[in-house]
Design a protein around this nucleic acid. Structure first.
Lengths: 224, 224
DNA sequence: ACCTGAACACCGTTCAAGT
DNA sequence: ACCTGAACACCGTTCAAGT
């Protein structure tokens, strides 16, 4: 009679959307996209797979919530910025770093681009464009270009993680890619691919990501 | 005894990778990504699901082959171009149109960016950059920016097709998206999103895609 | 050498039965 | 109101058995 609202279960806490999402993020971080199943999630939460549906509509909603949680930290952190171009760089780098830390986020962002996470990025970028002095009717195109670029990088990051699930040695991976390119594609038919393959080994993803952002920003400064 | 190598089966042609890939493309075009199953494919080819594995290693290889077939038409077509900037625009528009005609191609490209299809686009773009006079060490970054942008657009196109599988009325879809944005996100927190939502209805995807390409090209011309 | 199709090992999701 | 866990309707893939 005294226990009207038992906030904690017998063992550990009661099931809740927060706990489920947190467990999902941990599972995804540990084992990648394919590791997340309702059965292993239920097991980790010591319950049955059906119980999860009391707090989450389906797997898509769960993935959406997990992605939003990771990205929310990025956009809220980098609000203050003196120069608008620098602010855009900071936001985009934040997204890049989040995706590199959680490659499944990249896959989810490119699968469902218009979920809250991406809209927040779109909003933050758009505001800075106004500050940059980009004409209003060009702002949409400029923000879209930035977002599309980030989505492309996000997808590639996820693909890389899928290709080598547990690996950490990035340069070894790039060497494998370069070797595949030079082996499978003829130098006569693919001269540019061969030229780039040589540069691939000593190659910094993060720096190249920023170079792309700067290229788009340089193009945007043309619009003023 | 006379029939040493029966090239044709009793009904229709014998099973072959070509026939399987063609049937896969048709199935994907008709029903989208989820419509392709080995069971429906086998049914369409009047055989059992196991037979397909005699010609194709697995579903990933099949999707890869289907994508390559669609994209091959694009890059081989637009080789001749007078001005390199115009040539890049033509290649990228070709990819855009192919993705719009077959949205599942967009999904596959962003899932496996470094398959033959994307490498061909990368190669074509890279060659034109040389012609544009972009310094060699900057060519990799410039080509990557273009390819990442296209991949982002590809993923979004696929996501749109997933959201409304059979629909053709594009502007009706955009109005739904705009309505969702303005309803679910507060104007005070998302001013830019609200501003853009108003422009969304009378909005041309293809034109915006080109605007993004032009933005990147403008940035690239800075590098010379 | 290729095809057949039942069977295996999984999924996400549902739902009667419990508490 | 929430949890339990067997069951359903699917997947991709395998493999003994046929031809």
């Amino acid at each position: 009679m005294t226990t009207q609202k038992p906030r904690t279960g017998r063992r550990g806490d009661a099931l809740s959307k927060e706990r489920i999402v947190r467990a999902a993020v941990e599972t995804l971080d540990a084992g990648g996209e394919d590791a997340l199943t309702f059965r292993v999630l239920a097991n980790r939460l010591s319950t049955g797979p059906g119980a999860i549906y009391n707090h989450v509509a389906n797997k898509n909603e769960l993935l959406r919530a997990a992605t939003d949680e990771v990205i929310a930290h990025v956009t809220t952190g980098a609000v203050t910025g003196p120069e608008p171009g620098e602010a855009i760089r900071a936001i985009m780098l934040g997204v890049f770093d989040a995706i590199h830390a959680h490659p499944w986020v990249g896959a989810q962002l490119s699968r469902e681009p218009w979920q809250t996470a991406m809209l927040q990025i779109f909003e933050s970028a758009g505001r800075q464009l106004t500050a940059l002095g980009v004409p209003e009717q060009a702002q949409f195109d400029a923000a879209s270009a930035l977002v599309n670029y980030v989505l492309g990088v996000a997808g590639q990051s996820a693909a890389g993680a899928r290709a080598l699930p547990g690996e950490t040695d990035r340069s070894a991976f790039l060497e494998t890619v370069a070797a595949q390119w030079t082996t499978q594609y003829d130098a006569a038919d693919y001269p540019f691919v061969h030229q780039v393959a040589a540069q691939l080994a000593g190659h910094d993803d993060r720096k190249q990501f920023l170079a792309g952002i700067d290229l788009i920003l340089a193009g945007i400064s043309t619009l003023r």
